[in-house]
Design a protein around this nucleic acid. Structure first.
Lengths: 213, 213
DNA sequence: ACCTGAACACCGTTCAAGT
DNA sequence: ACCTGAACACCGTTCAAGT
């Protein structure tokens, strides 16, 4: 038995990629994506600072693996429903996973291809079946992707009160401050996704009017 | 004349906030927001590494000032047009400034309040005049904000070709690869903004049906 | 008042060396 | 094969010191 055969079976390796990803997710859930440093990860693994570099080429690769893992369990809603209902369900399922793996959206926003491939494929197929032409499928996907992964980065909470600034009832920004305070992440999510889906339905009607359908 | 009077007029100050912001914008346009470090900024200003700290409390404050400056010149379209046309024009003007100050969107995405206040006010007033109720105004603004500032972070260009991966005509992701390559930033922008605006028109109709109008 | 220089507590990553 | 330790080239920020 050669040593390379031994190596391929990794007989007594103490570290596995799964352990690394699990540790990374634990850190992200505790301290957010910014809290995930290679040194913090090594502490979580109980291993020397640079050990993880034997398994991942660099930090970006680690983040890609983590993002893929977060979306791995997504299932695609069945074809019996109308396309916009299915799209809404698929978006809801992605959102549920993202809330579960809090912090990972930041990774997914940047590069579309790091979305788990089967999720991208499912959404594109759905859009194609709905009647979007090729360019429409791609642009519609990009629109959903941008909204879905971008929304997590937006925080509304402004500086609670600047001393020099007096509240002005005639200023709509001041007048709506209590409304902002009363709305929750859920409200923004529902409204935003409804808006994007309704917008895509309008885009499809427009494409049909222009004679591609 | 006391020394504090002299100071208030800053008679021979070599550094001004304007110079700092200008230098920051030059660095951002050359190397992106990530390339803007406090040390790089000082080199651009021809001054010692920590000099800028006399004018800004920290890097985040610098970025806020830069973002405010980028949106300072936005003018609001006149009231004679219908609200969705005005909204589209306002979004286009913001986008034009962002393209001019390339890289600043990254700052604006994060926190809504760092959008120049007059831009936020203009868009909210427009949405209120359109007929959205208070919660609708806030959620609609948030939706536009998320899409508009989020889209810059999304890059489509995947890894050009993974060796182990064979193109599969039955896989829609592979099949649409040439379509992705043929589309430009402009196409995504037009489609995405059209989608969001059309979606908001649908939301307003829904609100009216539900008896708030 | 305005700016400098050195220092502190971090990063990601490389690489020779250990087992 | 798998992991360690030291080092390199960076960060943002603080602070005593200069002019």
């Amino acid at each position: 038995m050669s040593s390379s055969e031994l190596a391929e079976r990794r007989p007594r390796s103490t570290l596995t990629e799964e352990q690394i990803v699990d540790a990374a997710l634990r850190v992200i859930r505790a301290d957010g994506v910014d809290g995930l440093t290679m040194r913090r990860l090594s502490r979580e693994l109980g291993v020397s600072a640079m050990a993880a570099y034997y398994y991942v080429a660099n930090k970006q690769e680690l983040l890609d693996i983590v993002a893929a893992r977060a979306l791995a369990d997504i299932t695609v809603p069945g074809a019996e429903l109308s396309w916009h209902v299915r799209l809404r369900m698929l978006i809801d399922r992605i959102d549920a996973e993202l809330r579960h793996y809090r912090g990972v959206e930041e990774v997914l926003l940047e590069r579309m291809h790091s979305t788990q491939r089967h999720v991208m494929r499912a959404m594109m197929e759905l859009l194609a079946e709905a009647g979007f032409d090729d360019a429409g499928v791609v642009m519609a996907y990009a629109t959903v992707h941008t909204y879905l992964f971008g929304r997590y980065r937006v925080t509304l909470a402004g500086p609670p009160h600047v001393d020099s600034h007096v509240e002005d009832e005639d200023d709509i920004v001041d007048r709506l401050r209590p409304t902002v305070a009363s709305l929750h992440g859920r409200d923004y999510y529902e409204f935003g996704v409804d808006t994007v889906v309704a917008g895509l339905r309008a885009q499809l009607r427009k494409q049909r009017r222009n004679g591609h359908g």
